[in-house]
Design a binder for these strands. Structure first.
Length: 682
DNA sequence: TGGTACGTTC
């Protein structure tokens, strides 16, 4: 009796012909019901059994443990007339794999230890306890268990070894894991080898993992292949991951749900819609779409490819609440800038975990909706008043402060981190530095930078950009060279910061040097922003001919940013003829952008060419494009106050305009006085 | 006839 069908036939016959199945058959049937998710049927059969043995009790305890029904499992465990080590192990593993039963697990283990005359701890007990040690991060207990295993000879089994490798790699050190693996000598079993592969991947030692994997390819099973496919996908080698997947099939190893769950990660990183659809087909045919890992993975692929309609259709088929699917949907809507849909989904949830909240915070920040970030923060505090904010929520809040140059709320957030003793990781320190730098408090940014022990590229980039924007070009350049001395490799952001320092200070030669160094020394391809920065630099230093020559060397098609920068250069140099050329190109690419018309009109007006200015204005009206009004803002009394020209919508507009009138009067009087004092008597 | 390795979201 191997399948549920066979079991059901047996039970039907028993009822029809009025015989009682053997205890052995009934025990098997309980397992079959349980592994097919039919807990009630399993329980009914157990209740109706006229005779039971130790296996029967184990089968029913196991059924409840599998169904995560731990209270009932424990009640049956207590009621069992016969208990052996398996009954204890079942209950123990139930506690260890569930959330919040750690104390029960420890107590049960103590009880087991005190009953050494009745039951004897075996390798199953010990490997289950090793999993608990990982969960509780209790390394010293892990070492004690290891010693006990050696003493009792329970460390020789493959699963015991693999659990030790797993425990050391997750909680102690990779070195210890290697040691356990090394002790196996030539007698390496499949399970330990797979555990070691996983440990290497966890450590980021993909080279080592590959060596182990390819050394004896005949030893690899589906788990070995899946481990590597997943590791490549997780570490930014999506193409490698897909290649391994294909190779796995060629090697005659069957793909399973684990394979596809990992492959989906690679597929979404590649934004490969075609592959995503192929996987989708496969999992629908195999019924794997019901697997929560798979369905949320497919939603992720469609979201990353920008196809929310497909994502929605898969989301609609989720039968149980899947927080991964929900998060992926929210991230998908956010990346499309569709925050109202993201919010609608969020509001429809009765239960929200911290990651779902964080996804919405990140979405608002990505769409630059700073006020929404702050409002959401208030909501979160009402919703979860006792929760310490997730560090990524804090990063989003700091990002919103940086965008608004809101030094006060930024400082309050910093104080919150210190008060709650939140660990400052690299994301938090860089977000804080960025906030201080963009809010005009470069000194504070510097202070944090000095205190960070493990500085990464992002820290340096923020600091270099901060110096550049505050006009400290020499400090920017010095820090860049310090960074190189520390063997950190610059990226496109670093060079944009350096070039913008040159632009602000009109340093053509230095700028050219850094621009060349990008490709020549660091093999980094310049992006559109680097090109436009250089054009701007030439424009500001009245070297329009150089700008024209430079533009000829740009390999990609010029886009609106480049032509916009060039137009600005023409404006600064009064080259109206060249401006007209740029105008044609610019409006062809970006004819719907109102700011471009204003830029052109201002250029002609500045050089007194009123006819041209009028022509552009007419063109703009004909196109019915609008320019978003430029605005300024100031952070006062816990709120951002936005001002546009001639705007009277502010609640305190009257008082503001009267103060403005007063200040303007004072200033002009002051200016007059200065002129009078410095001019010779008329 | 029972129990442990490889899979995801900000």
């Amino acid at each position: 009796m191997r399948t549920l069908r066979e079991g059901l036939i047996l039970q039907a016959k028993a009822i029809k012909y009025g015989f009682t199945p053997t205890v052995f058959s009934s025990n098997q049937l309980i397992h079959l019901y349980s592994s097919n998710g039919l807990l009630k049927e399993a329980q009914r059969l157990f209740d109706e059994m006229p005779e039971r043995n130790a296996f029967s009790w184990n089968a029913i305890v196991s059924a409840h443990v599998k169904a995560r029904n731990l209270t009932q499992a424990r009640a049956l465990f207590e009621a069992a007339t016969q208990r052996d080590i398996v009954t204890y192990n079942l209950m123990l593993s139930g506690y260890v794999s569930a959330e919040g039963y750690e104390t029960d697990a420890v107590e049960l283990f103590r009880q087991m230890q005190s009953m050494s005359d009745v039951i004897k701890l075996d390798e199953f007990t010990l490997t289950t306890m090793l999993n608990l040690v990982v969960k509780l991060s209790s390394v010293s207990c892990g070492r004690q268990l290891h010693s006990y295993m050696v003493k009792t000879g329970n460390d020789l089994n493959g699963f015991a070894r693999s659990s030790l490798i797993d425990m050391y790699s997750k909680r102690e050190s990779f070195g210890e894991a290697l040691k356990v693996f090394g002790q196996l000598g030539g007698r390496v079993d499949l399970v330990s080898r797979n555990a070691m592969l996983a440990a290497c991947c966890r450590e980021g030692e993909l080279g080592m993992a590959s060596d182990l994997f390819w050394r004896e390819t005949e030893l690899n099973d589906a788990v070995s292949w899946n481990t590597l496919i997943s590791a490549f996908a997780q570490n930014g080698f999506a193409e490698e991951s897909v290649k391994m997947f294909v190779e796995m099939g060629k090697n005659g190893i069957r793909w399973n749900e684990h394979t596809f769950a990992s492959l989906l990660g690679a597929c979404s990183a590649l934004k490969d819609l075609k592959l995503g659809k192929e996987i989708h087909c496969w999992v629908v045919k195999n019924g794997s779409i019901l697997n929560p890992f798979i369905s949320s993975g497919i939603i992720d692929v469609y979201s990353k490819c920008g196809n929310m309609k497909y994502a929605e259709s898969v989301y609609a088929t989720d039968e149980v609440v899947n927080s991964f699917s929900i998060t992926n949907m929210i991230v998908g809507y956010s990346s499309q800038g569709n925050m109202s849909e993201a919010r609608r989904l969020f509001d429809s949830l009765t239960e929200k975990n911290s990651i779902i909240w964080t996804a919405l915070f990140c979405g608002y920040l990505k769409s630059q909706q700073c006020e929404a970030v702050f409002e959401l923060l208030n909501e979160y505090r009402k919703w979860e008043p006792s929760n310490v904010l997730d560090p990524l929520i804090i990063v989003s809040v700091l990002g919103a402060c940086a965008l608004q140059a809101g030094l006060e709320p930024g400082k309050q957030t910093h104080a919150y981190i210190l008060r709650r003793g939140i660990v400052m990781d690299e994301k938090l320190t860089s977000a804080l530095m960025d906030m201080y730098s963009k809010s005009g408090s470069l000194g504070h940014a510097e202070k944090i930078f000095d205190e960070v022990i493990k500085r990464d590229l992002v820290h340096y980039n923020i600091m270099i950009a901060g110096y550049a924007h505050h006009g400290h070009r020499d400090r920017a350049f010095q820090l860049y060279h310090k960074m190189l001395d520390k063997s950190l490799r610059p990226d496109t952001v670093t060079f944009l910061a350096l070039l913008s320092a040159c632009r602000h200070c009109g340093l053509v030669e230095v700028g050219e040097k850094y621009f060349r160094s990008m490709t020549e020394d660091h093999n980094i391809l310049p992006e559109i922003d680097h090109y436009s920065c250089m054009i701007d630099l030439y424009g500001r230093t009245n070297q329009l001919e150089k700008a024209v020559d430079f533009m000829k060397t740009i390999p990609t098609d010029f886009d609106a940013v480049i032509w916009g920068a060039f137009l600005n250069a023409c404006k600064l140099n009064g080259k109206l003829q060249l401006a007209r050329e740029a105008e044609k190109r610019l409006l062809a690419i970006e004819g719907e952008n109102g700011s471009r018309y204003v830029q052109l009109a201002n250029l002609y007006a500045e050089h007194g060419d009123w006819a041209e200015m009028e022509r552009i204005r007419r063109k703009m009206r004909g196109k019915e494009v609008k320019k978003l009004a430029g605005c300024s803002w100031v952070y006062v009394e816990n709120a951002v106050n936005v001002f546009t020209s001639g705007d009277t919508s502010h609640g305190k507009a009257e008082a503001i305009y009267s103060t403005l009138g007063f200040l303007t009067g004072e200033l002009s009087e002051m200016a007059d006085r200065r002129i009078r004092e410095s001019s010779p008597t008329l």
